[in-house]
Amino acid sequence: MAKTILIVDDSATMLMSVKSNLEMNGFKVETASDGVQALNKLKSGTKPDLIITDINMPNMGGLELIQNVRALPGFRFVPILTLTTESQAAKRDEGKKLGATGWLVKPIDGADLIKVIKQVVPGA
């Protein structure tokens, strides 16, 4: 069964790029443009096998989203990867403390992305 991945990023370009890459690799992709939208998706029945979230977003940023996701029933254990840039090492660690599984470094290489997903999502 195809795994579902929720991508959260305020940049439509980034969403489009990651989404097309994932879809080409057989994943089902849901998108949200900020933390609030992502939470609403989760609350309204989207059950992703992995969440990939940007850090800097309006309304609700990635770190806050992670905290909120972990507090949602049914999402205690879902793998979450943060989307960071090279200079955001501190944010990665903070994300991990708040419950993120790991991180991706922008710009994302397509093959790397799939490799990481296979590593954190059993059966992907």
């Binding site: 305020d10 940049s11 370009t13 980034m14 790029s17 940007d54 800097n56 977003m57 309006p58 840039t85 922008k106 710009p107």
Partner: peptide, 16 residues
Amino acid sequence: TELFRYVHTLKGNSGL
């Protein structure tokens, strides 16, 4: 913060 986010995201996108 907003300003930083714009530049940051734009940079990230250009890296694609």
